[in-house]
């Protein structure tokens, strides 16, 4: 039944997947095993996205299914268990910009790939980036922006990190439709990621050995 569930989630068959989860739980399947199956199914979804077979709506739909399964499974779990993460990434849309689709997709893909991600939202001022980075201590910081006006916000954010002595402690990637390598250079970031897969790849490179 685990294989069947994995397949149903990966193929985005919500109703059938939810039915099966209920059946499994009433048959005495360990709820943690159900969640583990979900995790492997979402890995398949992530893989299909990387391969260009799945697109943003498919990611959202798999997220929707996961959320509904969690709601069913959660009452059956006693305590949360810790799992080893690949590394920490803090991500946010810079000040003055409230776009979040791209940022959310990157967050999703990083989580699927085993990163511990802290998403600090949209329109985030530099001082909040500084504060949250101090608290969370990520290895990687992602700055998102869809407006050309976000370039200067990115620049200000990175300057704020420099002024508070955090710049050398993190690798910084930027992303968003109008950004490119030249913009990365302009704002003082370490790299530009052209899409969510590139963001995962950069984060992998920067957290290797963790």
């Amino acid at each position: 039944m685990q294989e069947k569930l994995k397949e149903l989630i990966a193929d985005l068959k919500e109703e059938e997947a939810l039915e099966l989860v209920k059946e499994m739980l009433s048959n005495g399947t360990d709820p943690m095993d159900v969640l583990e199956t979900c995790r492997t199914a979402v890995e398949v979804v992530g893989k299909r996205f990387e391969e260009g077979k799945y697109f943003i709506p498919d990611l959202l739909m798999s997220g929707e299914i996961m959320e509904n399964i969690s709601n069913i499974v959660k009452p059956h779990i006693s305590a949360d268990t810790e799992e080893k993460k690949r590394g920490k990434v803090l991500i946010g849309t810079v000040e003055g910009d409230i776009h979040d689709i791209g940022k959310n997709i990157v967050t999703f893909m990083l989580e699927v790939n085993g990163f511990d991600v802290l998403d600090i939202g949209v329109d985030v001022p530099p001082e909040v980036f500084v504060e949250k980075i101090k608290e969370f201590q990520p290895q990687v910081v992602g700055l998102s922006g869809l407006l050309t006006l976000a370039f200067d916000s990115m620049k200000n954010t990175i300057e704020a990190l420099e002024n508070s002595g955090l710049r050398d402690k993190v690798k910084i990637m930027i992303g968003g439709s109008p950004t490119d390598e030249q913009v990365a250079k302009y704002v003082g970031a370490d790299a530009h990621g052209k899409d969510a897969n590139a963001a995962v790849e950069l984060s992998r490179q920067w957290t290797e050995g963790n």
């Binding site: 050309t148 109008p178 490119d180 030249q182």
Partner: peptide, 9 residues
Amino acid sequence: VPNALLCTG
């Protein structure tokens, strides 16, 4: 014509 180029080029 990329807006990034118009901004930074």
